[in-house]
Amino acid sequence: MRTSTWMRVSTGPRSDAQDPESGRVGLLILVCTMVVLALVSVGAVITTVHVQRSRLLTCADALAAAGAQVVVANGFYADGRITPGVGELDLVQARVQGLLDDSAGTTCRVGEGVHLDGMSVEDKDIVVRVSATARLVGLPPFLGAAVAPILVETSSARLG
């Protein structure tokens, strides 16, 4: 009679508690996932700031064009001139500020609100400077207010 002996081939440790490297793959996947999520979050914030800057430039363009129309219309219909007269720049700035207030919910809805920083006439151009504090997505409000960049854009429109 023959007796058969079965030999067990060892394929490694029998339990995870005995393996000093057990769980490292899971930890590596967790760390890689956190890095990818951080990169995606940073990309989203950068994209948001870029879009807000683009919208602020659109607002500045609209305000400069409106200011140029006011200057040209007032001067041209009064006495045929194109450049603003004495004291007329204050009127134009008040009109541009009024347009900014009216379009705060549409064209000029950027970040935490757009502010008219200045307006001037240089040669035959009207130059408008606006600023806004960017609104950052995904950050708590107290942290977003501390690190949010202030966006500044300048636009000009030709008189005449």
Score class of each variant (00 low, 15 high):
residue 56 L to F: 03
residue 68 A to W: 05
residue 83 T to W: 09
residue 135 R to Q: 09
residue 64 A to I: 04
residue 98 G to P: 09
residue 81 R to T: 12
residue 105 G to A: 14
residue 93 Q to Y: 07
residue 52 Q to T: 01
residue 93 Q to S: 14
residue 59 C to D: 00
residue 33 T to Y: 10
residue 61 D to V: 05
residue 73 A to L: 12
residue 53 R to N: 12
residue 60 A to W: 02
residue 21 E to C: 14
residue 27 L to I: 14
residue 51 V to Y: 11
residue 95 R to N: 15
residue 64 A to C: 04
residue 67 G to D: 04
residue 62 A to S: 13
residue 55 R to Y: 06
residue 91 L to K: 03
residue 128 V to T: 14
residue 131 S to H: 04
residue 98 G to I: 12
residue 110 V to F: 00
residue 68 A to E: 02
residue 25 V to T: 15
residue 77 Y to R: 10
residue 137 V to P: 10
residue 66 A to S: 15
residue 107 T to R: 06
residue 64 A to P: 01
residue 124 K to P: 07
residue 48 T to V: 06
residue 61 D to S: 11
residue 97 Q to P: 04
residue 101 D to A: 15
residue 68 A to T: 07
residue 67 G to M: 07
residue 69 Q to W: 05
residue 51 V to R: 15
residue 74 N to D: 11
residue 109 R to Y: 04
residue 68 A to G: 13
residue 62 A to D: 07
residue 50 H to T: 11
residue 125 D to T: 12
residue 102 D to S: 13
residue 134 A to D: 01
residue 23 G to K: 10
residue 127 V to Y: 02
residue 98 G to T: 13
residue 109 R to L: 12
residue 83 T to S: 13
residue 138 G to Y: 00
residue 58 T to R: 11
residue 60 A to V: 10
residue 87 G to L: 05
residue 25 V to R: 07
residue 93 Q to G: 12
residue 22 S to H: 12
residue 22 S to V: 12
residue 131 S to D: 03
residue 100 L to K: 01
residue 82 I to G: 02
residue 88 E to D: 09
residue 41 S to L: 00
residue 138 G to D: 00
residue 94 A to K: 06
residue 122 E to R: 08
residue 85 G to A: 10
residue 83 T to L: 14
residue 85 G to D: 03
residue 109 R to N: 11
residue 78 A to F: 06
residue 74 N to V: 11
residue 103 S to A: 15
residue 68 A to Y: 06
residue 106 T to C: 03
residue 90 D to F: 09
residue 140 P to D: 07
residue 26 G to M: 08
residue 131 S to M: 08
residue 63 L to Q: 00
residue 67 G to A: 12
residue 34 M to I: 13
residue 89 L to N: 05
residue 96 V to T: 04
residue 107 T to F: 02
residue 43 G to I: 01
residue 77 Y to T: 12
residue 115 H to S: 10
residue 46 I to Q: 02
residue 85 G to S: 04
residue 95 R to E: 11
residue 21 E to D: 14
residue 23 G to L: 06
residue 26 G to I: 10
residue 67 G to N: 05
residue 77 Y to I: 12
residue 96 V to R: 00
residue 55 R to W: 05
residue 71 V to W: 00
residue 109 R to Q: 09
residue 51 V to T: 14
residue 42 V to W: 00
residue 129 R to D: 08
residue 34 M to A: 13
residue 53 R to S: 12
residue 102 D to W: 07
residue 103 S to E: 11
residue 129 R to C: 06
residue 86 V to H: 07
residue 135 R to V: 04
residue 91 L to G: 15
residue 65 A to P: 08
residue 109 R to S: 11
residue 69 Q to G: 15
residue 96 V to F: 01
residue 126 I to Q: 05
residue 31 V to N: 03
residue 56 L to R: 05
